[in-house]
Design a protein around this nucleic acid. Structure first.
Length: 593
RNA sequence: GCGCCCGUAGCUCAAUUGGAUAGAGCACCAGACUACGGAUCUGGGGGUUAGGAGUUCGAAUCUCUUCGGGCGCGCCA
């Protein structure tokens, strides 16, 4: 039997409709929904089936709904089926049907909510992808958590997921990194050069002055002695040191980034290097491929509308016909020196992913890359047509607050808040949870005080507390001699669960599989956080009912039948909380200490 | 100037992707409390979903438009 109560009722309704009106048009069928009733007065579930299908069948919505209701009333799980409003079909389940959710959860364990909508399709989720030019900071953190949770979510929904990190180790940024590391190297061998003096010597200035490169300079000095400098310890010609220092610095930065990622609990399956890609000839190959398809030409772009940039001049460039695939303008693939643009490299990288056989590519980017989405989608369409879908999840900026004041993040001053600082301050699980309490494309405030507060306004605490309370009850019951394993509880009769607060909790638990599917389809992992918060609320309400009404307490030694039924409900609640936290990558706590 | 995203209670945000009377937390008001873990709970007030027009059985959600905010806009990545 399908553990998803909503899916089962959906199937009942479709069956009733086909019995009534014959085989359905697929478009109509896809629009039929069964959702939780908005109010308990409406029953347990509601469906829009009659309103969606009535027109095509030449019936009125209410008329069709009534016919369907008559058929559904015969189903053993259904207590009542009624018509409301413009044609809603409201269904009230028999208590036994709701109760059946509990053993289903206990039998499935954390796998409850697993779905097969992904049908094993291969999905690549690329996230974080920070330049290897420094430690990870809060800006990267959100993308890392959102991408990782999205990957977990898609895996739960039945997709075959690959987690990928793209190392931007080929551009001007790593050149600047190499020079900055060299500056620290010179310091390490005793040559102090003022930043502004050094900046004049370096082709792109001295961009990275943070302390984090000091150990890299020291390590270079230890490995190479004074061999990378001139005889008197000054700046040697780049050909003597540049590649050595660059590769050394990139390796050091990537080691730090991997460590930061693992502190956050993020472990990509694949690290893809932009430089390796370029070296393999993939960029030239993909440009040639596009050229062969007639999608490249040399031309001059129209100037941007309105006020021109100061240095604007008409310039002939190698352009990709992005406009053929829905972009606003054609996009340059080569710089004036003939080398490839970042976009060209990125096309090659995405072509590589396409070549590895993914049906869906998901890129998790910062919102400042929003203007880049259309051209990348155009490129995918040019390369793979409708065969491959690219989805881009944009993450808005995170403002960190402490004591109600914004925490400054100035990279230049080297005082920016690193991911490591943040994790040390509030803990990994709190970081992950809070990052998922907003839709990713909405700006977010990360309030450090709230994140560690032990009150209801802190969603992490509230959810963890619910789980700890569940475990506490089960521990307590075990001490009193009750069997509390999930296996034992799965066989308990549940007829005594009839309080409205208990039924509300069961309804919530029943909605978990449906929520997973919806969140996975929309690529919205934040829905998990909201679901868990609501679930925790339902549980805490029930707990508090037991305060006023002694007969609603979970453990009542003199009433073993009721106690056992409630223990089953409590255990099922804990399972679903764990199942949800697992998607978020948060470890459930057994007790609050 | 053009494009994309956004605008929901005083504040921070939801709204099952077009469904019924737009919901939570904080703040505010009024109550409850020697506890299966009070690390609180219950109830209440608060809305023209920025404004206007349209699409349809039905709009916070889709279209157009005005206003306001963010991001981006030919050799940065």
């Amino acid at each position: 039997m399908n553990a998803d109560l909503f899916a089962r009722m959906h199937a009942h309704i479709i069956a009733a409709l086909e019995a009534e009106a014959g085989t359905l048009d697929a478009g109509i069928r896809a629009r039929i929904e069964v959702s939780p009733a908005r109010e308990t007065a409406h029953g347990d579930m509601a469906s829009n089936v009659a309103m969606v299908a009535a027109k095509a069948l030449g019936q009125t919505p209410r008329g069709l709904a009534e016919a369907l209701a008559r058929r559904l009333r015969d189903a053993p799980e259904i207590a009542a089926a009624e018509i409301a409003g413009p044609g809603f079909l409201n269904i009230r389940l028999r208590p036994a049907a709701l109760h059946a959710v509990i053993p289903a959860i206990l039998a499935a364990g954390e796998a409850y909510g697993d779905s097969e909508i992904g049908t094993g399709q291969r999905v690549n989720v690329e996230y974080v992808s920070a330049n290897p030019t420094g430690p990870m900071h809060i800006g990267h953190c959100r993308g890392a958590v959102v991408g990782d949770a999205l990957a977990n979510l898609l895996a739960k929904a039945g997709f075959d997921v690959t987690r990928e990190y793209y190392i931007n180790d080929a551009g001007a940024q790593v050149t600047a990194l190499a020079w900055a590391a060299y500056w620290r190297y010179l310091q390490a061998i005793g040559t102090e050069i003022a930043p502004e003096d050094f900046a004049r010597e370096a082709p792109s200035g001295l961009q990275y002055q943070g302390d984090y490169l000091i150990p890299v300079g020291a390590a270079l000095a230890e490995r190479f002695g004074r061999g990378l400098a001139t005889a008197d310890g000054g700046i040697a010609p780049p050909e003597h040191w540049f590649e050595t220092v660059r590769d050394f610095a990139i390796a050091a930065m990537m080691a730090g980034i991997r460590e930061d990622l693992s502190l956050l609990g993020v472990r990509p399956d694949v690290f893809a290097s932009e430089r390796a890609l370029v070296a393999s000839g993939a960029v030239e190959a993909v440009i040639a491929r596009l050229a062969q398809a007639g999608l490249i030409y040399d031309g001059v772009l129209a100037p941007p509308k309105g006020k021109l940039p100061e240095d604007w001049e008409p310039r002939e460039q190698t352009l990709f016909r992005a406009t053929q695939f829905g972009d606003d303008v054609d996009r340059p693939l080569r710089k004036s020196d003939g080398s490839a643009t970042y976009f060209a490299n990125d096309i090659a990288y995405h072509a590589d992913k396409v070549g590895r056989g993914f049906a869906t590519l998901i890129d998790v980017w910062g919102a400042d890359h929003g203007g880049y989405v259309a051209r990348m989608k155009a490129a995918i369409r040019a390369l793979a047509g409708e065969r491959v879908t690219l989805a881009v999840v944009l993450c808005q900026i995170v403002h960190v607050l402490k004591g109600g004041q914004p925490v400054r993040m100035s990279k230049r001053a080297g005082s920016f808040v690193t991911l490591r600082d943040l994790i040390e301050e509030v803990g990994r699980d709190v970081v992950r949870f809070i990052m998922l309490t907003r839709k990713s494309d909405a700006q977010m405030e990360f309030d450090l005080d709230q994140a560690v507060a032990e009150t209801r306004e802190n969603p992490v605490f509230y959810v963890q507390y619910a789980h700890a309370r569940c475990r506490s009850v089960l521990r307590h019951a075990a001490e009193l001699g009750f069997a509390t394993t999930e296996k034992a509880l799965a066989a308990i009769p549940l007829d005594s669960l009839e309080d409205e607060a208990e039924l509300a909790l069961i309804r919530r638990l029943a909605g978990w599989p449906r929520l997973v599917e919806g969140a996975a389809r929309a690529f919205e992992p934040h829905r998990i956080a909201f679901f868990l918060y609501d679930l925790a609320g339902d549980f805490h309400i029930l707990w508090n009912r037991g305060r006023d009404t002694a007969t609603l307490r979970f453990i009542q030694p003199e009433r073993p039948a009721e106690t056992k039924a409630r223990l089953a409900l409590v255990a099922a609640t804990a399972v679903v909380i764990r199942s949800g936290l697992a998607v978020m990558g948060v470890v459930p706590v057994e007790e609050m200490r």
